[in-house]
């Protein structure tokens, strides 16, 4: 139980989860070592987002063990969970900036809520964080005035406001133009190394991830089907990985979702 000596920040062992009757994860094993950037990849509906929410303690697993910073997340009460969450940070898909606050107030939000820092100190800290993502000039804008890529960068600044030990990114590359995408990818890497944090990137953007992460897990139908460093993945002969990395339409992941035979569906409809 004394997991504080463990070199890994996040450890999942044989994790099962289901929404009601619908199985989402069955038996996931995953490790995030300290200081590394780990990507979790998989197609839509493979359970990536669920996995992320489990790590954040927003969902409870059905069985299996899940520890973050040496603490058993599902067993934590609300107070301990909140204490743990102050040490981690999650970047949501579209940034999830608070729409009724300016960029400055958004970044200042975690500091104002959790620290007793004086307003001048917060002012300087916020400008530092915004400078790190290159948006110091946008401090007084409202979120609706930002482009998608800028909003994501502001959210990144807000996520690192309290210097977290663990960063979790939910689809950080979705809906971005290639330039913004590259910027975000670099920022994730840079911030991770500068803060000495560990990062989990949940994504399905293969090419971008292969360039910046240390280790990759492939998730399919609620299971880890492949894992490895970017180099191992590129050279992998596993047909599933090959299909995913090169974006082929048909392969181990079928184009058609399971259904009754085509002829039968067409003819059967005529009979009824």
């Amino acid at each position: 139980m004394n997991a504080s000596v463990s070199p890994s920040l996040v450890e999942l062992r044989d994790l099962h989860f289901a929404y009601g009757q619908r199985d989402v994860l069955h038996g996931v094993n995953l490790t995030v070592p300290r200081g590394k950037v780990v990507a979790i990849m998989g197609g839509s509906g493979s359970g990536k987002t669920t996995l992320m929410r489990l790590i954040g303690g927003q969902l409870l697993p059905r069985s299996g063990s899940l520890s973050v910073c040496g603490q058993d997340v599902p067993a934590l009460g609300r107070k301990d969970l909140y204490a743990l969450r102050r040490r981690m940070s999650m970047l949501f898909q579209f940034g999830a900036l608070f729409t009724d606050m300016s960029v400055f107030d958004n970044v200042a939000f975690p500091m104002r809520e959790h620290t007793e820092l004086s307003e001048p100190v917060i002012h300087d800290l916020v400008l530092m964080k915004l400078h790190a993502v290159g948006l110091r000039g946008a401090a007084s804008l409202m979120p609706r005035e930002l482009s998608g890529g800028m909003a994501r960068r502001v959210a990144l600044a807000r996520a690192v406001a309290l210097d977290p030990e663990l960063m979790i990114y939910d689809e950080p590359f979705t809906g971005l133009d290639p330039i913004s995408l590259g910027v975000i990818g670099q920022l994730i890497r840079r911030l991770n190394d500068a803060l000495g944090a560990s990062s989990i990137v949940v994504t399905h953007d293969v090419q971008e991830s292969l360039q910046m992460v240390d280790y990759i897990y492939f998730l399919s139908a609620g299971k880890v089907v492949a894992e490895g460093t970017p180099d191992e993945i590129r050279t992998s002969t596993d047909p599933w990985v090959h299909q995913f990395v090169w974006g082929e339409a048909d392969g181990p992941v079928p184009f058609q979702i399971p259904a009754e035979p085509y002829e039968q569906a067409l003819l059967g409809a005529g009979d009824a």
Binding site: Q58, A83, R86, F92, F94, A96, E113
Partner: peptide
């Protein structure tokens, strides 16, 4: 709207 744009989840994850 705050819920739909994950602002509530984000707040919850910030331990607020």
């Amino acid at each position: 709207l705050m819920k739909a744009t994950e602002q509530l989840d984000a707040m919850d994850m910030m331990a607020v």
